[in-house]
Simulated assay, not measured.
Amino acid sequence: MKVLTGLDVLINDKELQSKFSGNVALLCHNASIDANFTQAAVKFKEIFGSRFIKMFGPQHGFSTDVQDNMVETDHYVHPFFKIPVYSLYSETRIPTDEMLEGIDHFFVDLQDVGCRVYTYIYTLTLLLEKCGTKDIQIIVLDRPNPINGIDVEGNITESKFKSFVGRHPIPLRHGMTIGEVGLMHQNLWAKTKVNFEVVKMENWERAMFFEDTKLPWILPSPNLARAESTMTFSATVFLEGTLLSEGRGTSQPLEIVGHPKIEPYSLYENHLLEIIKKSKLEGFVLRPITFLPTFQKHANMVCGGFQIHVTNKSRFKPWRTGQLILRELYHVLGEDFKWKQPPYEYNHTQMPIDIINGTDKLRHWIENNEPLEILESFESLDDYKEQLNAIKIY
């Protein structure tokens, strides 16, 4: 049975619509569509008319057309809707008092990817914190976690490595919908609670991957054009903390890894094949490839590397797989391997890889070539799973 998103539920329920009698704002992006591919803002104009007064966009912009980290988007008046569009990835990531003026109901309709470093969940929690002293209702129109709501994986972010890619103590693969992130925020992290509501999906089950929902996939950021990429994202996002290519500038970003100094076939046959066997990691195949990025890292240089093909999503462990690949390439490339230097996501002092990992211990694990079994010690998730169980709404 096809899943109905929170947006679809709102569109289909006149009684629910009538609960929101004041002025309305919408935080959305390119992937904020209904089951018929109609953009949420179009439906809001139909439903709320002149009470629909403001729109907001997250990182990558309202139109999801901005490529990279720390590339900000401007505020403007939309030429069709004739209302302001405010960027929450601009000179500020927190809505200002002026931006929020006149709003009674603030809707959030964003497609998350289930990974801690994806910033849309923090745009939501910053909004919740800002509205703690305001008479504004926050409503999340919920959407699926595309990599399911059961599996959690990775270390918990340490407090000293908090950032805009890791504001809260959650694992890399967090197992929540964006609505549940809001509920966890209100339950555990909020100093002042707000009038908060989640419009639940219908027919979504926690074991679903995105293709099980029968919903259309629209890229939620410029380099996640395929739903399949959400599974590899939690493995390849670590490469943002290095000068290895994660495939940006190709047609398969965040599914591939490479570097100009890699000869992929010999590296795979003589090294990685045996390492992967010993690791007992399953559910994926590394396919040796060469590729030519047209922009970003190693632009217009032929790179050797690998595409990660996920063959069994239920068995694939992206966090562990990504850490293993990073450890091996660190030692194989030697002096040609470079950690990216600050700044990264507005942090000008700490190493980007440590910000992404939420700890510096994993970088030391990589540099010291420590055994894969040690990774288990980073995953102390019992407390987190209890917290997750307390706020689950599906």
Rank of each mutant, 00 (worst) to 15 (best):
R226L: 09
T236C: 00
F56A: 04
G166Q: 04
E335Y: 13
E72G: 00
V9I: 12
V140G: 01
D382P: 08
Q387Y: 12
I275C: 02
G304H: 03
Q59Y: 04
D212G: 10
P352Q: 10
L4G: 01
I11W: 05
I353C: 09
K313N: 10
C303H: 06
F20I: 13
I147L: 03
F210V: 08
T294N: 07
G49W: 15
L362T: 12
N145Q: 12
V302C: 10
E386Y: 08
S163E: 07
T64V: 10
N369W: 02
G179R: 01
T73P: 00
V152G: 05
I83M: 07
C131G: 14
K214L: 11
P216Y: 00
P79F: 09
E367K: 12
I275V: 15
T230W: 01
E153L: 15
L172Q: 12
I325Q: 03
E180F: 08
Y268H: 10
P216A: 06
I33A: 01
W319G: 14
T177V: 14
K317I: 08
I393Y: 12
S21A: 15
N145M: 11
F56D: 02
M99N: 03
I366T: 15
M201F: 05
I355V: 12
T64F: 02
L272H: 05
F284Y: 11
L100Q: 13
G358R: 04
T242N: 04
H78S: 05
E205H: 09
K14I: 15
E240I: 01
I136R: 10
V77S: 01
L172E: 13
S229F: 03
N203G: 03
Q39E: 08
D142Q: 06
A35Q: 04
H75Q: 00
S380D: 14
L215S: 01
R248Y: 00
P352M: 05
T232S: 05
S63A: 09
E240C: 02
G249L: 02
K193W: 00
N389M: 10
L127A: 14
Y86Q: 00
W319F: 15
C115T: 14
E153F: 09
F48C: 05
G322A: 13
P253W: 00
N187F: 04
T64M: 04
L16V: 09
L286I: 12
S279N: 08
R363W: 15
A390E: 12
Q341G: 11
Q341L: 14
P371G: 07
K14M: 11
N357E: 13
C131T: 15
N195C: 11
E180V: 02
D34M: 04
Q137C: 13
Q59H: 03
A25D: 13
